[in-house]
Each structure stands twice: as structure tokens, then as C-alpha cells.
């Protein structure tokens, strides 16, 4: 299945080494192919984003836990700990 993925803030550093993604700015979507049935945790592993640096994961605009099972066409946003106001 194919996902549209966005990495935000500090997490953009995990694009380094991937020629297709290296120069994308924060929040720019890119496509990722994963086997059917993959979860958010599988996606983080595939992207080599360390679990402990991830605070919030959104699937189609809704926050979901890491064992959330993804579907073809899902849009995923991955955030480190952030705040403001």
C-alpha cells in the first residue's frame, strides 16, 4: 500500500541519506510503500525515526496510537514534542 507521509520540525533530519526526501522542508509530503497491514510503528521503523523522538502521530488528521493499522492512501503526520500558544 502507498502512504502520504509528512515529518515535522526536528524529525526532518531523518530524511538525510534518502535522495528523494533529503531536501524536503518540514511538512512536505512524500510517498512511502509498505506491506498491507503495516502499523504506525512499522512506518516509523521503515523511516528509521526513533520511537522516543515521536510525540504525536496523526492519520488523516486524527491522532492515533502506534499500533494503529494503516490503509492504502492514508495521510500520516509525525511530530516530535512541541508546544506554543
Amino acid at each position: 500500500m502507498r502512504l502520504r507521509v509528512k515529518l515535522f520540525a526536528f524529525l526532518t533530519r531523518y530524511r538525510v541519506g534518502d535522495a528523494h526526501r533529503e531536501n524536503l522542508s518540514s511538512g512536505t509530503p512524500f510517498e512511502v510503500d509498505l506491506p498491507e497491514g503495516a502499523t504506525l510503528a512499522d512506518l516509523l521503523r521503515a523511516l528509521q525515526v526513533p520511537d522516543e523522538e515521536v510525540k504525536m502521530t496523526f492519520v488523516n488528521g486524527l491522532a492515533q496510537p502506534e499500533d494503529w493499522q494503516l490503509k492504502d492512501g492514508d495521510e500520516v503526520g509525525i511530530f516530535p514534542p512541541i508546544a506554543g500558544g
Binding site: 509528512k6 515535522f8 488528521g61 511530530f79 506554543g84
Partner: peptide, 15 residues
């Protein structure tokens, strides 16, 4: 690093 405007993207993502 990013200031309070770091919230723009997460609020947008959350709709």
C-alpha cells in the same frame, strides 16, 4: 528553536 509558531503545522494537521 522554532518559537511558538511551531504550532501552525500540528494545528493544521489536526484540522
Amino acid at each position: 528553536t522554532y518559537g511558538t509558531a511551531v504550532l501552525i503545522n500540528i494545528m493544521n494537521e489536526a484540522g
